[in-house]
Design a binder for these strands. Structure first.
Ligand SMILES: [Zn+2]
Ligand SMILES: [Zn+2]
Ligand SMILES: [Zn+2]
Ligand SMILES: [Zn+2]
Lengths: 144, 144
DNA sequence: TTCCTAATTGAAAAAGATTATCAATAAGGA
DNA sequence: TCCTTATTGATAATCTTTTTCAATTAGGAA
């Protein structure tokens, strides 16, 4: 199913601004922040409001037609760091964060991806999201 | 080595604002955005400028005394999504992004972490960073 | 302890990013 | 073609982050 069909399927209209944004993302090699999409539209001679860019991206994200890419900077919630390499699990209920180590577990995957893509991988970002034991209980109580 | 010693070691002074921020992060259960650190300082009756919070967090990050936690929202660089579950490698040189699949490879790790922590994991964020083949060559040429 | 100097702070302002509002527009069906 | 309603875009309002610069203060020297 094409993205146009998915849009319509979900009850949205196929509009000019949405076409423009999709076209720009489609031609982009690197991930684009909203302002970059806006600028590119201007360069291409398209008339497109910045607000529409925000709205369109939010919609496309909701429909899973685009994905977010996270850079190291720009996501500013901070936790204390223990020495050494760690990853985090974040509870969707209470935002509690727990560290865990497990770099080795990524080694196989890293090697495979390096081989397949030719990239030289030197860093990674791994986080799990879920419910902590307390929030699991809270949910269980609410249901029962 | 304590964080105080690390600071001094790196040539920085041990100041009141830095102590306050570290204390707040130390007592926090959830990750805190700068404005949250600021508010908490105010509640605790500390006098601390918002700008200093930003500066201090940046410094602590540089010294690896704090880590960033990424939420799904708030990191707004978008790429087109293919259907299905994917991860991304981002080239630090040219920002090119490539998708790869490999959800299965995380299954073992997910299971282990669930067991160890009691969390119920329902989502994850995995990204690799590195150099694409083209940028590797560019680097190689520069050196030679 | 006291003094000095340079690092650091904080207030204010500037710059940027995001969201809310609402009249004007245009997509898609009748 | 016409109508209805989703959608757009300009403006303004909010937030967030960065810059600037005079006032403060940490930490070493005297
Ligand atoms: Zn929880
Ligand atoms: Zn890791
Ligand atoms: Zn590259
Ligand atoms: Zn995944």
């Amino acid at each position: 199913m094409s993205w146009q069909e998915q849009l319509v399927e979900a009850g949205y209209r196929l509009t000019r601004p949405r076409r423009i944004v999709m076209e720009i993302l489609n031609n982009a090699r690197a991930p684009l922040v909203p302002s970059a999409v806006f600028k590119r539209a201007q360069c291409d001679g398209h008339s497109l409001g910045l607000v529409s860019v925000y709205r369109t991206l939010a919609l496309l994200l909701e429909l899973d037609l685009v994905t977010l890419v996270h850079f190291s900077e720009g996501c500013h919630a901070y936790v204390l760091a223990s020495p050494g390499h760690h990853h985090h699990i974040i509870c969707s209920g209470c935002e509690e964060v727990i560290e865990f180590s497990g770099a080795e577990d990524l080694d196989a995957l890293t090697a495979r991806v390096q081989q397949e893509t030719g990239f030289h991988i030197d860093d990674h970002l791994l986080q799990f999201y879920g419910l902590c034991p307390a929030c699991q209980q809270a949910v269980a109580k609410k249901i029962s």
